[in-house]
Design a protein around this nucleic acid. Structure first.
Lengths: 189, 189
DNA sequence: CCGACAATTGATCGCCGATCAATTAAATAT
DNA sequence: ATATTTAATTGATCGGCGATCAATTGTCGG
């Protein structure tokens, strides 16, 4: 409940204008109670961002589901479109994931790591599916790299860098890079 | 002077703990004077981040210079290593570039855009140099895409995502993706 | 020395994250 | 039903922040 409303507030105002006090006000609790539950501002943000990860993963699984019995290429497209689609439809919440940095002395609770890691797991599985048996061992590493590739394009899309450079189809660009790398991987092992 | 000290403060404490008051204190001015000069907190951040861009561009030009009369492949490597090298050596300042988001009603002063754009210009020039004459028209678009690719890898490196996934050589990963895309571009036009 | 203009100051405002003694509610024992 | 213990909740309080602006200080030609 706290997290859901906190997530809404993040979606409404973005990371820079987010405040724990406002979340408390929105659910009718006092600021003190909220701090008793989460202990720290950072922990609240972590919880909200993990929720964003979960919603994002669901969104991408959905996109994969809708690409039904289609070929591997269509599933790769669904992955990229799912990545971009969620980020664009949830600008503030998505950006908050990367706006928030843990202080060096704080660590992410393992259960949050596990939930967030599922998104990568989905990608690894799809990459594995389009690689020949001989090089499936490389799937995790390649998948991480492709996620980074798509992430870079998505980031530049949302923060206006691409628009500034006159780029009109960042997603197509990202998909092209992913396809190239998958082709190269298939050829080289 | 204000900007230089502001940049140092950003490098010292990072975006989240940065404060205009502290910058004023560091140079021995009052908070009021600082606001008379920059008008807004955002304008101060913009100035600091543009300075980071300039230092970054110089750093990469240097890396290219040191790769002297070497082949195109070595210059591409120098580009990627310059991108990562600066970011790693200036974590806080580099991250601040992407942590700061302009409010929707504010626009970046054109002279800042111009200075920041030089980094992309450098990359476009290098990409053009390794493409056959037939497809030089595609150089700007491809260059933007490759910058996004490297950026994604660099971001995941600095924010710990790669470390979390067990990836030990993010830069090598980025370079591999860039080489693949350049090869594909050379073949397809 | 004076007045006009520019530069600089810092007290003040509202809001923030964080704390914690005091209060209220709930559960348990008698 | 009442007393006692435990848990949950509160909000005033603190220091620090971005932002403002009347008051002060500095500058310089006449």
């Amino acid at each position: 409940m706290l997290i859901i409303e906190g997530h809404k507030h993040m979606a409404d105002v973005g990371f820079a204008r987010f405040s724990a006090r406002e979340v408390a006000k929105r659910i009718g609790y006092s600021i003190g109670t909220l701090y008793n539950v989460f202990g720290t501002y950072d922990q609240l943000i972590i919880a909200i961002n993990t929720r964003t990860f979960v919603l994002w993963t669901d969104y991408i699984r959905d996109a994969l589901g809708k690409s039904g019995g289609k070929s591997g290429d269509d599933r790769i497209r669904a992955l990229v479109e799912g990545y971009f689609g969620f980020a664009r439809a949830n600008r503030n919440a998505w950006m908050a994931i990367y706006d928030h940095h843990l202080p060096p002395d704080v660590t992410m609770p393992p259960e949050h790591d596990a939930l967030r890691g599922q998104l990568t797991d989905v990608v690894v599985e799809e990459v594995r599916a389009v690689l020949p048996p001989a090089c499936q061992a490389e799937a995790p590493r390649l998948a991480r790299s492709l996620v980074a590739t798509v992430h870079g394009h998505c980031m530049f899309d949302l923060n206006g860098s691409f628009a500034l450079m006159g780029e009109k189809e960042p997603m197509a660009l990202a998909l092209a890079r992913v396809r190239e790398s998958l082709l190269a991987a298939r050829a080289s092992c």
